[in-house]
Design a protein around this nucleic acid. Structure first.
Lengths: 205, 205
DNA sequence: CCTACCGATCGGTAGG
DNA sequence: CCTACCGATCGGTAGG
């Protein structure tokens, strides 16, 4: 997009590639240092360009942070949601979503665990567009769980009298604790405990 | 302790009072801005003294951070644990610990919710003494839950075949999710949902 | 506990 | 996409 002279001819895909490299790197670093703690110079160094090189893609740090949340959402969708959507709606998809989430933590898709878990903790007491975006993503995830609880109820795989909102809350609690405990204590047993608890909870409902 | 001239005579209690004011303020701010994001100048301004005034009490930022974690632990003990210890060991104390935790979140003892939940999320991928200290506090809390699960089992209030570690993990998950959801969505229903889930879980076990 | 200062780094801009 | 620069703020220190 720029009008700077270029030694090699720049193509549209060159710009897109570096744009994605910046955001993927930013999302990874944000799970280690926080979305606020991440500095422009540090990020520039990591992707091998200058600070002002980044400002060719983003107007401000907040603009970069917002785009980073969007890129992280794309990763989350690809790594957790898409594969679970292959399963039929209802109990099977619900279980697949949980398994994919735990696998996404274990595979260290982001080096600092679930991007939205750490970013929510960092931004939950701040105001503005980034907090709002994180809220929207997490609310969407919870609604996805709820929709599959409801479908499972209609299909007779979960009891009619269970509160879908309550059950989704409990499942989310187990998934987030698995992430947090796994990161703090480097203990893979946390992932198994969440899996066990979710299976038991669903079998009972 | 210093040898600076003083207009008013400094007593030992003056120094102790400002030491505690600094740490209490630091702990409160850390739940809003992070223990790393909190700056010395910002903290100094908040407590009404100069930056170098703080360095009369602490050798470095890390020293301050470590002392802040200790002060936060004292608050947590006073606000959550002490009152629950009035109940007899076992199921009653276990329920009291959970209720006191949820009340500590709701009462906004720290403006950014549970100090150890937010600090754990910030430090779980870092190394060093602060991460270690946060680990120790959270491990101690989990052991306290476990000890009361075991006592409840011996007293016949919980089934013998429940895994105390597993049950403590699930309770912790619900408490932490209550904190996180309450903060991000400003939704008091999250606290009720955790309370309900814990009661159900204990009634079943 | 203060003022005054240090080098390093922050987010961001001018100009090409 | 670069170099060179801006004022502000960072953690920390000297000296009292």
């Amino acid at each position: 997009m720029g009008t700077y002279p270029a030694r090699k001819r720049r193509t549209r895909s060159d710009g897109e590639r570096s744009y994605r490299t910046i955001l993927d790197t930013a999302a990874r670093l944000a799970t280690l240092e926080g979305l606020e703690g991440l500095s422009i110079a540090r990020l520039a160094g990591e992707v091998g360009m200058s600070k002002s090189g980044l400002y060719a893609h983003f107007d401000s740090k907040q603009d970069l942070q917002l785009a980073t949340v969007g890129a992280a959402e794309d990763v989350f969708t690809a790594e957790v949601i898409t594969r679970a959507m292959e399963k039929p709606e209802g109990i099977e998809r619900l279980q697949a979503l949980c398994q994919r989430y735990l696998s996404y933590v274990k595979r260290a898709v982001f080096p600092g665990g679930c991007f939205f878990s750490s970013t929510a903790a960092e931004w939950d007491t701040r105001r503005g567009p980034i907090r709002d975006r994180v809220r929207t993503v997490l609310a969407g995830w919870t609604e996805l769980l709820e929709a599959n609880v409801l479908a499972a109820q209609q299909q007779g795989d979960l009891a009619q009298d269970v509160d879908a909102g309550q059950l989704s809350f409990e499942i989310n609690a187990l998934l987030h604790e698995a992430n947090g405990h796994y990161l703090l204590f480097r203990d893979p047993a946390a992932l198994d405990r969440a899996q066990t608890a979710i299976e038991d909870r669903l079998a009972r409902a």
